[in-house]
Amino acid sequence: MDIHELRITAELAMLDLDEREMKVFEAEVSKTLEYFAQMNAVDVDGLEPTTHVLMEENRAREDRTRDENLSDRLLEEAPERQGRHIVIPNVL
């Protein structure tokens, strides 16, 4: 992978890489992708992809009310809040 591809990938991953990291990751990612390329030697014709083992069917939960309500405690974890609203930088 070259620096250009790495930049695009980092952009998609929402990560900022400085010059040092660019160098380190370019080498590491390239080495690993080369290793992944070994998979090209395998004859996969006729093989179905496995996405999950043992996942037999979709299951729905029973439609019933529950007593617990985690929302307040989850909101307590927000880095910045006003009442029950999470504050973020201006988008407009």
């Binding site: 990560l15 880095p79 973020i88 201006n90």
Partner: peptide, 18 residues
């Protein structure tokens, strides 16, 4: 945004996430 570390120095939303 919702939980975990937030860099408070960022000006825009995208900058903050990145």
């Amino acid at each position: 945004i919702r939980y975990g570390y937030r860099d408070t120095g960022a000006v825009t939303m995208e900058e903050m996430v990145r």
